[in-house]
């Protein structure tokens, strides 16, 4: 499947649909998790990368992996734009995941500021992947502003609460042509599988792996679940009976043309 079914983001092809968040790991575990999960994209908090010590995350991520710097720490569109530009200056490439968060308690994204930042950065040639609260109107605005993907949250960051916003994500998947990457809140491989089989293009996971007893095993479990979900989506899910059909109680006997 990997050879024929690629994740395509702004013309860049990826075999893996698993994006690894790295903010909560020991760096040596990031490397191990990348290998176990077969991840080809790893997020990078720039506020963590800008260090002079041996503990620089850039040294622990294999060179074949695409870095996805995020703008965590930004409270406004302007701050997100500055972080993105700094990231490019530091040689982290053109990909950027927009995170604009004004709320330190639940870390919910500010959709309005996210749209503004997306518009500015897309015009500057960045490949913009905005993290957002799943709202169809906002997703449309982001698409119009030049976003390369849409990254709706499933639940608050770090919560492992699962697919609390599943129906709204599904609406975005159905209505928006861009790849929809589900980001934040996914707590288990089964949830990743569930939203992949609904048509999500990829999954981003951090806390669920970082807090697992065995990080490598959990990373691999996510990898397999995402592959399974994708296969199920491509295969087309079978029908689901939502009600009990009572054929013995006829409702069509009154029709003239039998």
């Amino acid at each position: 499947m990997e050879n024929n079914d690629k994740l395509i983001i702004a013309g860049h092809e990826f075999n893996s649909r698993f994006i690894l968040g790295s903010g909560k790991f020991s760096l040596d575990l990031v490397k191990a998790a990348v290998e176990s999960a077969g991840a080809e994209i790893v997020t990078l908090a720039l506020r963590r990368a800008n260090t002079k010590t041996e503990y620089n995350i850039l040294d622990f991520i294999p060179k074949t992996v695409t870095l996805l710097p995020n703008t965590s720490g930004a409270r406004t569109a302007e701050e997100a734009v500055r972080i993105a530009r700094l990231s490019r200056e530091l040689g982290c490439g053109d990909f950027v995941k927009i995170e604009v968060i004004k709320d330190t308690k639940f870390l919910l994204p500010d959709n309005y500021e996210t749209i503004k930042a997306t518009e500015i950065l897309a015009k500057e040639g960045f490949i913009v992947m905005p993290y957002m609260y799943p709202d169809l109107n906002v997703a449309r605005d982001l698409a119009n502003a030049g976003a390369a993907t849409i990254m709706p949250l499933a639940a608050p960051i770090g919560s492992n609460l699962g697919l609390l916003t599943k129906h709204f994500i599904k609406i975005i998947i159905d209505e928006i042509k861009l790849p929809v990457i589900v980001d934040a809140g996914i707590g288990s491989p089964s949830q990743a599988c569930e939203i992949m089989q609904e048509g999500a293009a990829a999954i981003m996971v951090n806390t669920a792996i970082a807090t697992a007893k065995n990080i490598n095993e959990m990373a691999e479990a996510f990898k397999l679940a995402i592959i399974a979900g994708r296969k199920a989506y491509l295969a087309g899910l079978g029908r689901v009976l939502n009600f009990k059909a009572e054929a013995s109680s006829p409702l069509i006997d009154f029709l003239e043309d039998k």
């Binding site: 020991s26 506020r47 963590r48 503990y55």
Partner: peptide, 12 residues
């Protein structure tokens, strides 16, 4: 088994 973080902030 924890991870020492030296930098966790960007001055903007």
């Amino acid at each position: 088994g924890l991870y020492p973080v030296f930098s966790n902030h960007i001055r903007l």
